[in-house]
């Protein structure tokens, strides 16, 4: 038998060829028992080797094809840029959400006031007239001289109205005047004009306080409601300095909490519920 194998391997090979071709023919018809079993048993090995092939292939592809690296680099840069923009948008949305939440809380805390929420869409370039433009107008019920406020205090008064916009004269305007009350003493005065320090707005003047008024630093200033434009009791600011020169009246400097340069949303007071207020 050993001699036969040694001398006539070709016969064995030919028989094997015939058998294998028959096997392949049966396999083509799906009639080989155990074929699926063998393939299933080899599946983990196949998966492992396929993984190795992918890793090796990816390595050589990257090493020998710089264009692939460049494309991948460009794609990653685009992805980073896109993600950065999304992140910035998310951050912006988060900040807007915080501001609007603050306004909403303020509105909830003042149920007697009816508001229209508006965003700042422009600022006048004229350095002598300090106004801002909001994206709410007559269609939203806004009329001239309505009060504009935020949770941080009084912003100003509507000076001009369009269908879907309005211009607001802010408290930073030199000619803006409103009637206010010192919350602790109930003394009344007139607020207006700008107090500057080192070229920056540091507050506004509080004039015409009675001579016996006991105004102190830290007192809270609120709107008095006199004049009818600003509802009574709105927060305006805090006294930061008192000027008592003995002329029969007091002057004070009031610091406002509103950052006019970065103001983005505001509430326009379109109505006051007198029954509650």
């Amino acid at each position: 038998m050993r001699k036969l194998w040694k001398n006539r391997p070709m016969w064995i090979a030919l028989i094997a060829i015939v058998l294998l071709i028959v096997l392949a023919a049966y396999s083509a018809n799906g009639a080989v028992a155990g074929d699926g079993l063998f393939r299933s048993a080899l599946t983990p090995v196949s998966a492992f080797l396929h993984g190795v092939q992918e890793d090796v292939g990816a390595f050589f592809t990257r090493v020998f094809t710089p264009s692939v690296l460049e494309e991948e680099n460009a794609r990653l840069r685009a992805t980073v840029l896109e993600q950065t923009q999304k992140l910035a948008l998310l951050d912006e949305t988060e900040k807007e959400n915080a501001r609007l939440s603050e306004l909403l809380h303020f509105a909830d805390a003042n149920p007697n006031l009816h508001f229209v929420t508006a965003s700042v869409i422009g600022r006048d370039s004229n350095p002598y007239i300090d106004t801002i433009i909001l994206n709410a107008g007559s269609r939203s019920g806004v009329t001239e001289k309505m009060a504009v406020i935020t949770a941080d205090g009084v912003v100003g008064r509507v000076s001009e109205v369009g269908p879907n916009w309005c211009r607001v004269k802010t408290m930073c305007d030199e000619k803006m005047r409103i009637s206010v009350t010192v919350q602790r003493t109930r003394d009344e005065g007139m607020l207006g004009g700008l107090y500057e320090e080192d070229g920056a707005i540091a507050g506004t003047y509080l004039y015409y306080l009675p001579g016996k008024a006991d105004v102190r630093v830290g007192d809270t200033i609120r709107t008095s409601g006199i004049g009818g434009f600003f509802p009574k009791g709105l927060y305006v600011g805090t006294v930061i300095a008192v000027n008592d020169e003995g002329r029969g009246t007091h002057d004070a400097i009031v610091s406002m909490d509103i950052d006019f340069l970065h103001l983005e949303e505001a509430l326009i007071v379109v109505g006051v519920d007198e029954a509650i207020g």
Binding site: A13, L14, A16, I17, L20, I21, V22, A24, D35, L42
Partner: peptide, 24 residues
């Protein structure tokens, strides 16, 4: 080879055997 990546079991083996016979 057939088990890993060919649909017809035995085809590659038969082809390789034919080649071996010719080479021999």
């Amino acid at each position: 080879t057939d088990l890993f990546c060919n649909p017809y079991l035995g085809l590659s083996a038969a082809a390789y055997l034919i080649a071996v016979c010719i080479e021999y």
